[in-house]
Amino acid sequence: MTAMVFQVAIGGLLMGLIYALVAAGLSLIFGLMDIVNFAHGELMMLAMFAAFVIWQYAGLDPLMMLPIVAILLFGLGVLIYRGLIARALSVNFNRGMVQIFVTFGLAIFIRGAAQFVFGGEFKSINTGWLAGRTAEIAGVYLPLPQVAASFVCLAAFAGLLLISRTEFGRALEATREDRDAVALIGIDRDHIFALGWGLGAATVGVAGVMLAGFYYVAPNVGANFALIAYVTVALGGFGSLLGALVAGVLIGEVEAITAAVLEPSLKQVGVFGIYMIVLMVRPRGLFGKL
């Protein structure tokens, strides 16, 4: 019985850390410039396909390709900002909706492109250092790819924390507080925004690579994770790194418990229920700034 309880709790934690990292990238961009990236799940999906392709043609293990994919996604994030978001910021009418639907359009486009290139079938990475291996501790089974993913997620959070302590991190924070005033001290906000998008995309890229180590890869895989990421971010509070971490783990746990107690197909109902309840009590999420 205790082993089963631990099994559920560990399962929730392992998944929750992935959710947390996916949400962290979203939250970072939102906090910086008040834009919800509705193509966030598609960025994750692209990272998963990148991992799949690299694995297939170069035989690299997901752990080894992390830096490559992170850099690719970073570039993609910068590109998206420069090409689309900067333009969306400069419209002077209906800006809120334009931002939402530009990223929506982008999401649909990316999904279509992935389908065009890779087809709709599920793929998976099934060889590697850890693929398919589990460890057993006192009757609790630990799938190693997921354990590795969790450590990578924690490391990524530590990395984000370190970045926020650097001078660049301060500039990010300053830009988020007063995007017009930074120009007065010679900071180019477009540059900061672009790097912010790069960083957000790289973050979800890292999550995507690790996820690809044990999850199916397909053009529509992002949608579900994105929905959970929005909930995580809203639950933790938009723009809060700690909020994303706590809410991600919370959601992983609630999901695992609902699946165990009720029914696996209802696991997300539990998640969304908790989210609604928390928002009723704290409309700005657990750690949201007013």
């Binding site: 333009r87 334009v98 359009g105 649909i108 279509g112």
Partner: peptide, 19 residues
């Protein structure tokens, strides 16, 4: 997927060109 690409493109272009 070409249909999705086209559709997404139209959304992006209209949203940006005709806010």
């Amino acid at each position: 997927g070409v249909d999705l690409m086209l559709y997404g493109l139209v959304i992006v272009v209209v949203a940006l060109a005709r806010p």
